[in-house]
């Protein structure tokens, strides 16, 4: 991708929420800093990924940029318009898919929904009609577009919500987890359409929990954690910041004692529980040289009576970048964290 001029320039945006904490009959006001002084440029014509665990601030940032929230401080320019002073022009410059299958009128048909939102974007009626026909063909909606949305499957609602975000053919598209609840075929189709839209010149801001998806689609990604951008760059560049062969995934029944001992092995930087279901654990281990530490990891697991179903050095993913930067899992931020510092406590 050739870098062009920025189409979105974010300058020192901070966002603080005030919430009420309830407990033992008393209410206390609590301030939560969702975004801390975020500055960022997104270039015209790029697919930009925004990654981070739940509660990291991705949605807050997107809501600020789409004018749904007012930043506590800072500002942004979008398509040449100031976020706070030219709100309507900012809105006309963007297409949004922010709430998945929500945000549709269930008692209207898909076509009526598209027409409704087309009118809200000030699209003349005849243009609207042509655009809807075009989107029906592009997204293969013809089988259900004239039925009321209440009869749709989740995947059909998602694809209609995606169509809604394209109704105004805006130069900038915000897509927040667009493939959630879609089947594999529909998700692949959507990614291919996103790529084509990008080739046509649209700038796309894409949030996803699927690292492979971000890796495949995005020219650059920003990893956001606790309201701050902790990594920014092309996926390949970010991944190369972690030495190759430094990630090992272990799956099986792994006792806590084994996890604690693994992080004490020289050359292991951190071990994070990536997933835990039905008593089985997926452990992601970041180390200096996986080939060298692999036998030692196996020794510990055997000594601790772990049942190993799968163990393999992995290619570095964006999730590993996040783990390396924060010591925590990207997909499940509340999971147990085991670091050398905590081990043995």
């Amino acid at each position: 991708m050739t870098m062009s001029e920025p189409i979105i320039a974010i300058e020192n945006i901070s966002k603080t929420f005030t919430s009420k904490e309830r407990g033992k009959g008393r209410k206390r006001k609590k301030k939560v800093e969702a975004l801390k002084d975020v500055s960022l440029e997104i270039f015209d014509g790029e697919v930009f990924g925004l990654l981070g665990p739940n509660g990291a601030g991705k949605t807050t940032l997107i809501k600020c940029l789409t004018t749904l929230l007012l930043p506590t401080s800072g500002t942004a320019w979008i398509n040449g318009f100031n976020l706070q002073k030219e709100e309507n022009k900012v809105r006309a410059s963007i297409g949004c898919m922010l709430m998945g299958e929500r945000g549709l009128y269930w008692k209207l048909t898909g076509r009526e929904n598209l027409d409704y939102f087309g009118a809200l974007y000030y699209i003349p009626k005849n243009v609207r009609r042509e655009r809807i026909d075009y989107l029906v063909d592009l997204l293969e909606l013809s089988d259900f577009v004239d039925r009321t949305v209440e009869t749709y499957s989740s995947g059909q609602k998602m694809i209609l919500a995606f169509a809604k975000s394209l109704i105004n053919d805006a130069p900038i598209l915000f897509l927040d987890e667009p493939t959630v609840t879609m089947d594999v075929h529909a998700a692949r189709n959507l990614r291919s359409i996103v790529r084509n839209l990008n080739k046509e010149g649209h700038t796309i801001i894409y949030t996803t929990h699927l690292m492979a998806e971000a890796d495949e689609l995005c020219d650059r990604v920003a990893i956001i954690d606790r309201g701050e951008i902790i990594a920014l760059g092309p996926p390949s560049e970010l991944k190369s910041s972690i030495p190759q062969e430094s990630v090992v995934d272990v799956e099986g029944v792994i006792p806590e004692s084994a996890r604690n001992r693994i992080v004490e092995i020289p050359g292991i930087r951190t071990a994070v529980v990536k997933d835990e279901t039905n008593g089985k654990t997926m452990l992601g281990i970041i180390c200096d040289n996986s080939r060298r530490v692999l036998p030692k990891i196996i020794d510990v697991l055997v000594e601790e009576d772990a049942i190993i179903e799968y163990i393999s050095p992995q290619e570095v993913t964006l999730e590993d970048v996040f783990i390396a930067k924060t010591g925590r899992s990207l997909s499940i931020d509340t999971r147990e964290i085991v670091t050398p510092k905590d081990a043995g406590k």
Binding site: S4, E5, P6, I7, I8, A9, E11, D44, W77, I78, N79, G80, F81, N82, K85, N88, K89, A92, S93, G95, G118, Y121, Y122, I123, P124, V127, R128, R131, I167, N168, D169, A170, P171
Partner: peptide, 16 residues
């Protein structure tokens, strides 16, 4: 106010 970004069209929106 100086626009700090490139300015493209407003898609299909026609404000009137």
């Amino acid at each position: 106010m100086t626009a700090k970004t490139v300015h493209k069209n407003l898609g299909l929106s026609e404000m009137s």
